[in-house]
Design a protein around this nucleic acid. Sequence first.
DNA 1: AAAATTACCTACCGCTCGGTATGCTTTACT
DNA 2: AGTAAAGCATACCGAGCGGTAGGTAATTTT
Lengths: 197, 197
Amino acid sequence: MSLMRVKSETTVNEILTAAENFFVEKNYADVSMAEIAYMANVTKGALYHHFEGKEALYIAMLMRDFDEKRALFQRAVTAEGNCRARLELSVKLLFALPPHKRNLIRLVRRDINIFKGQAREKLLRAYQSALPEVIEAILRDGIEAGEIAAIDVRLLSWEWVAIVEVVLTVYAQDVLGSTERCVEQALNLFFGGVGVR
Amino acid sequence: MSLMRVKSETTVNEILTAAENFFVEKNYADVSMAEIAYMANVTKGALYHHFEGKEALYIAMLMRDFDEKRALFQRAVTAEGNCRARLELSVKLLFALPPHKRNLIRLVRRDINIFKGQAREKLLRAYQSALPEVIEAILRDGIEAGEIAAIDVRLLSWEWVAIVEVVLTVYAQDVLGSTERCVEQALNLFFGGVGVR
DNA sequence: AAAATTACCTACCGCTCGGTATGCTTTACT
DNA sequence: AGTAAAGCATACCGAGCGGTAGGTAATTTT
């Protein structure tokens, strides 16, 4: 039970990693099971041995990433400091990831429409608890401490994520120069806006 | 030349409208030429008579929408008032559109990755001139007038669009109640941030 | 050592979808 | 009136993909 289990886990991980690489760069429909298998150095038969189908594989891949992301951002929630400092930490943690892992964050919002019923619900719940809820926890503290205005936290978290996604682009990093400037830009906009007072 | 031309134009418009309805709700790959044809009350033969293929049809559809959007937002550029007032007008114009036309705006950013080469460039240029450049014109005026901070206008326009897209969601409209509140929320965040001073 | 289970491969099936070949009907030109 | 051309329908093809059936080799269980 030991040797085989290790082998299986290794294969599964290789498959999931291969899947990540394809799904971040191409649409769900444009990624074939055959190429994932090829990239993972196995055959299609192996894929269907470990996963029920394409949809299950895709969901499993996202779930694994959600777990990583949740663990990562949890560090920002439990960190010391005020709301702004903790948001800053969360973005810095995100920037510290390799580009490919960063971009995985956008997959749900891009592909959520292709799933129906329970698969869709499952994904949404998992995403909610991996990202928005974590941000919301920080924002709630910020509101209680009187640092930010008392606006619906979910809406606030979405706006925050939207703002961050912009500075995550290549263009933003070109224009702003460094990671620090990107983080600063996002924080300044979110907390103070761009209007001149 | 007259009767047939009118007939043809009508058919083309019906095809484009049918295409819009499908492409806003499903991924590019999940929309079939057959269902577009059915929705437009023609056959696949007619589609391929009027368009070279699926890609050409999709691009033509976006192009038509770009033209409408550019004409729409141009009104905000030439309007009287300061930067903030004109941005407000542009969002209100967007909100005044039927939901289906509103959402077309997100298609490019969603699907741009599935095109390569010249098709991709063409789409990007058309999109740039239909939306970002229009916003940029307003923002540039705002910077010159000292209303907003001197940040790269393209980056600013992206942030603005990102913020607006959030208040365009159903959730935001539920929470905030009215269109006016949505517009106000976006403007307040963009100009003043959410930090308490 | 035999049986059962796991991991994986090869070969194949069925279906969908983009695209095409061809012909019919209506309009436009001369 | 006759001919050319445009608008559109029908019927079909070929490729590619998700998924399956069945076999083989290794490992674990009894």
